[in-house]
């Protein structure tokens, strides 16, 4: 089969399946499927955003869950104040709470992007092992920071009174919320496809391939890396905003380092440096988790060696298997 159709046929099947999922769930009478798949789509979004820095930018960030968590907390905290009718901040400027998704979700992306800017500007001063450890450490720092926020539930987390309001769409309906997630993911994939083929995308891939050469060509590498890091952080924050709405609950656990590890696994499992690989990776990983937890509470005893096996014996991930490409280039 030519590569093009090997690539597009399975993806088209997947797209149709995802579009029809609420209907299928209805037929099976299993409403849980809709909320399960909402969660899968949100994690897919976060995995895609990580792949932007990991697969395309060549930066092994082990702290991506931090931005996911910051996004989630942004929504939760704004909603908390929105319901209470109290301002989140009075000084130096007054920031009111809000339960409007058109406010909270962009705010989630923005806050995560700001954190990514701060963390990225420090950690991108280093590369390799240093970068991995530093991103991990900063993520853990945020984890402890949010634990110390007693007002917002501290260790126990914070519940939302309800999902945010979106004018024209009732998000408390699981089906509607599912389509919101699907829409956000689709738009992100479309924008991601434009991004990686744009001048900017070519530059970050060039940096991944050969940083020294990029410098010698005249690219201020640090700035491009940082921009990529911030964009990815922002998208992860948006994902966090969605997960807060999906579960109507946030806790510091969202930014625990094992979350970062799991998102990394999704990307590698699906195929890094590809647009749709992380989507497949997230679906497979979370479905596996779902099935394994049904079999044994000690599912991690199976997942751990499975991961080691995936790393040692596969190249290119699931997406590579489907398309027959070892590792996608550019």
């Amino acid at each position: 089969m030519p590569v093009a159709s090997r690539k597009w046929v399975p993806l088209a099947v997947l797209a149709v399946f995802l579009a029809a999922l609420p209907g299928i769930a209805e037929m099976l009478g299993d409403r849980y499927l809709v909320s399960l798949f909402s969660r899968l789509l949100i994690y897919a979004l976060v995995a895609v955003s990580l792949d932007l820095i990991l697969g395309y930018g060549g930066m092994v960030s082990f702290g991506h869950a931090a931005f996911f968590g910051v996004g989630a907390y942004t929504v939760a905290i704004l909603s908390f104040h929105g319901f209470e009718g109290t301002p989140f901040l009075e000084w130096p400027l007054r920031i009111e709470g809000s339960t409007n998704a058109l406010v909270t979700l962009p705010a989630a992306a923005l806050c995560a992007a700001i954190f990514a800017l701060i963390i990225g500007s420090l950690s991108l001063r280093t590369t390799g092992m240093h970068f991995i450890m530093i991103t991990l450490a900063f993520a853990q720092m945020l984890y402890f920071l949010y634990i110390s926020l007693e007002r917002y539930g501290g260790d126990d987390g914070l519940s939302l009174y309800s999902r945010n309001d979106l004018p024209g769409l009732d998000l408390s309906d699981d089906g509607n919320f599912y389509y919101l997630c699907l829409g956000v993911l689709s738009i992100s994939l479309f924008l991601g496809e434009r991004l990686i083929n744009s001048r900017f995308g070519q530059v970050i891939q060039g940096i991944r391939e050969n940083e020294r050469r990029m410098l010698a060509l005249g690219f201020p590498v640090y700035r491009y890396r940082l921009a990529c890091f911030v964009i990815a952080g922002g998208i992860a924050g948006l994902g966090g905003g969605l997960i807060a709405n999906q579960t109507e609950f946030v806790s510091p656990g969202l930014m625990h380092w094992t979350q970062s590890g799991e998102i990394l696994v999704m990307v590698l499992l699906g195929g890094m440096g590809t647009l749709f690989g992380p989507l497949l990776g997230a679906l497979v990983f979370l479905l596996m988790e779902e099935i394994l937890t049904g079999i044994t509470e000690h599912w991690m005893v199976i997942m751990g060696p499975f991961l080691i096996g995936v790393v040692l014996y596969t190249r290119g991930g699931i997406y590579g298997l489907i398309t027959g490409q070892e590792k996608a280039g550019g």
Binding site: R194, L195, N197, S198, R199, F200, G201, Q202, V203, G206, M214, L217, G218, F219, Y224, A227
Partner: peptide
């Protein structure tokens, strides 16, 4: 293209396909 791009001002252009 990357070598040429380096001399055409910044590459913070996110939308148009480079090729």
């Amino acid at each position: 293209a990357l070598a040429i791009q380096a001399h055409q001002g910044h590459s913070f252009r996110f939308w148009r396909r480079a090729h």
